[in-house]
């Protein structure tokens, strides 16, 4: 097989909620579409969030729209990339089967991408790119990891959550406060107006791992106790409670990240994943960078949530390294 200097890569991501497709060429992300957008643009109407069947419905229009936006035709594609896992089996199967079929029809190579590695490689979509080795904090609704990144495909998870993910801690704390789900962005908004005057306990977890499940319970007990004295406690103190919850979640994250920086002696850090949109976390990580004299990297928000652009980016480096998948590729649900 003759490899190209600047391959046109079509990437597909369907590991969890949203179907996404992206087209990449010559160091440029030409398009990055998620179903909710694409379907809305083409057909209007409401899009269900969680369902393999939804991926089945969305994948063609999403790929089609991504190609059109990139100004490319099916025959221009030099390589098809797809998320192989981890994720929900039914959802992954839709993307993987589609990608395999398309690669076979077009007679182009197929590349399998690890979703969590792609979250890290999202840093390479735009300049300035990080220099190896660096530490990445990947924080989303489903994941909380500190990753030591030595090279594009030499990564090691050095810390992970032993129960809830950070994004889940935001969402569920918000639910307890009556903010609806997902509540992460709302907590952020209220927190900006409040003062972190209530103290929630910090979990005592050895090494670089995280725990957020106890926080949820302590918030629950704290509120129950306060409401005995004042029925309107939540309403009257919502901003301050949100500020306190947010500040605790962030302090847990930053403490372990700081410890990891000292342990692995890196000069650069990054955050990615949906929770990196949280303004408090962004501020905290910038401050940590200044304090410890580190370069800090945060990808554009559209590359932080689950997206196919990061899959395309990871696939580009795999293409360069000649790391291709064969037609026997099957998805995996857990890393």
């Amino acid at each position: 097989m003759k490899l190209k200097e600047n391959p046109v890569i079509l990437a597909i991501e369907s590991s969890c909620d949203d179907t996404s497709a992206a087209v990449f060429e010559s160091g440029k992300m030409l398009s990055n579409l998620i179903a909710t957008q694409a379907i809305h643009e083409q057909y209007g109407g409401v899009v269900p969030e969680v369902a393999s069947r939804a991926h089945q419905e969305h994948i063609l229009p999403v790929v089609d729209t991504a190609l059109k936006k990139a100004g490319k035709k099916l025959n221009d594609i030099d390589c098809v990339a797809v998320t192989a896992g981890p994720g929900l089996m039914g959802s992954l199967l839709v993307g993987v089967t589609f990608a395999k079929s398309l690669a076979l029809c077009l007679d182009v190579p197929l590349i399998d991408v690890h979703h969590m590695e792609a979250h890290v490689l999202a840093h390479f979509i735009d300049d300035p790119q990080p220099k190896f080795p660096f530490l990445n904090l990947t924080v989303s609704g489903g994941h909380t990891q500190i990753v030591l990144v030595k090279d594009f495909f030499d990564m090691k998870v050095v810390g992970t959550t032993i129960d809830d993910a950070a994004g889940e801690a935001f969402d569920k704390s918000g639910k307890i406060l009556g903010l609806g789900y997902p509540a992460g962005p709302l907590i952020d908004k209220h927190a900006a107006l409040g003062v972190a005057k209530f103290s929630f306990p910090e979990p005592q977890i050895a090494n670089l791992d995280f725990s957020f499940s106890g926080l949820k319970t302590s918030i629950l007990y704290f509120l129950k106790e306060q409401q005995l004295a004042n029925k309107d406690f939540i309403n009257e103190n919502l901003d301050d409670i949100c500020a306190s919850v947010q500040s605790r979640i962030i302090s847990i994250l930053i403490k372990k990240l700081t410890r990891a920086v000292r342990q692995y002696k890196v000069d650069e850090i990054g955050i990615s994943g949906g929770v990196s949109a949280n303004s408090g976390l962004r501020k905290a990580i910038m401050e940590t960078g200044e304090k410890l004299n580190l370069r800090v990297h945060i990808p554009k928000f559209e590359y932080c949530t689950d997206n196919a652009a990061m899959i395309a980016m990871a696939a580009y480096y795999k293409y360069k390294a000649g790391l291709f998948a064969d037609q026997a590729l099957v998805p995996f649900t857990r890393s």
């Binding site: 609704g141 032993i162 857990r334």
Partner: peptide
């Protein structure tokens, strides 16, 4: 022995 994390986001952990 695996790391057992919450399935809220992933929906199913096997």
């Amino acid at each position: 022995d695996d790391e057992i994390s919450s399935p809220t986001y992933s929906i199913v952990n096997e």
